[in-house]
Amino acid sequence: MNRRLLWPAVVLALLLLLNLFFTPGFLSIEVKDGHFYGSLIDILRFGAPLVLVSLGMTLVIATGGIDLSVGSVVAISGALACLAISEGTGVFAAVALAVAVALVLGAFNGFLVAVVGIQPIVATLILMVAGRGLAQLITDGQIITVTDASFKVIGGGYLFMLPFGILLALVVLAATVFLTRRLALGLLIESVGGNAEASRLAGLRSRGILITVYAFAALCAGIAGVMVASNVSSADGNNAGLWIELDAILAVVIGGTLLTGGRFSLGGTVLGALVIQTLTTTIYSIGVPPETTLLFKALVVAAVCLLQSAAFRSKVFPQRERPAARPAAKDTTEVAR
């Protein structure tokens, strides 16, 4: 009961049951037009960009930092990809350009944090504000529409009867797990997040680790931006990825990773992202008024965080104290002596 992943899993199950109450066939999965179809598939497909952004955010938070610029990076990468394709560039080259620019922007964030010494929330806030304006400049304030069928596959296509976006998110997740759990990178990240000064004295190159982590977060955001743009076949520099950084932070926190840095849970982050996406789907399915959507979402997330708190659970659900063990009887032979 004290495991951090228990309560997010319980909340996810309750949300699914709530949707099943309002929509009897909510959990059913069918095969239509050669691929799987159903509400659960839609949750995974629409939640794939959030899962990608949350994976990068997890590693950043594990170092004791924060990245507020991932939403702007999502908008920039989507805008660059659509602009390049609309001007005649091939889909592969356009996507590679968008992801490469996102990687450079993430390295810039890491440089500000690790080398210049700017606090992470301030360093990434710079790109959060300027990046949204840069996305507007790329699109010239307009919505760029792309009709290329091969570009549509990234966010709206199917492979092996599953949405391609789900498979892409699984590939990135597998690569992240391998790099952080099968190699020493995860331990180094947790060491820097737990105590950066002690890690430096132990000989770890914390600057390189920080730059790598912020670059990876932007890389994940860049892939998510291309996926979002592909799903709607257009780029909107103003609304693409708007507030996704806040959902990513919530997903990481719900997944059990502490904002103070140190140990992190990739599985918990994925579970947290699915909770956020399922909650969004639930809001629309049960007919919550649009003006109260954010309030409803905040209440559910606050409830999950409170349930995860051991101090809160100990006060609300006090456990009975076990009776004290009786003292052992004295040895009669020892007393006789």
Rank of each mutant, 00 (worst) to 15 (best):
R3H: 15
L5E: 15
V11S: 11
V11N: 08
L15D: 08
L16K: 09
F26G: 01
L27Q: 07
S28A: 13
G34N: 02
H35F: 07
H35M: 01
S39Y: 13
S39P: 01
I41W: 04
I41S: 03
R45H: 01
F46R: 10
L55S: 05
G56C: 11
M57F: 03
I61M: 08
G65K: 00
D67H: 06
L68T: 06
S72K: 08
A75S: 12
I76N: 10
A79Y: 03
L80M: 13
A81F: 09
G88D: 04
T89Y: 12
T89K: 05
G90T: 07
F92Q: 05
V95Q: 04
V99G: 01
V101H: 01
A107K: 02
G110I: 04
F111I: 07
I118Y: 09
V122W: 05
I126L: 15
I126G: 15
L127P: 01
M128L: 13
L134H: 04
L137M: 09
I138A: 02
T139V: 06
D140E: 05
I143Q: 10
I144R: 05
T145P: 02
V146K: 07
T147W: 14
A149C: 08
F151S: 13
F151N: 11
K152D: 12
K152T: 14
M161L: 11
I166C: 10
V171S: 05
A174C: 12
T176E: 10
V177Y: 15
R181N: 15
R182Y: 13
R182V: 11
L185A: 13
L187G: 10
V192F: 05
G193I: 02
G194L: 08
E197I: 11
A198M: 09
S199E: 02
L210G: 00
T212W: 07
Y214K: 03
A218Q: 03
G222Y: 10
G222I: 11
G225N: 12
V226W: 08
V226N: 11
V232R: 06
A235M: 11
A240W: 00
G241K: 09
W243L: 15
E245P: 04
L246E: 07
L250S: 14
V253E: 04
I254T: 07
T260C: 01
G262S: 10
R263H: 11
V270S: 08
L271H: 10
G272Y: 05
L279T: 00
T280C: 02
T280Q: 10
S285P: 03
P290I: 04
P290W: 01
T293Y: 01
T293G: 00
T293Q: 02
L294G: 01
F296H: 00
A302F: 15
A303V: 14
A303R: 08
V304C: 06
L307W: 12
A310K: 14
A310Y: 04
A311H: 12
Q319E: 13
Q319I: 04
E321H: 03
E321M: 06
A325H: 04
A328Y: 10
D331M: 13
V335G: 09
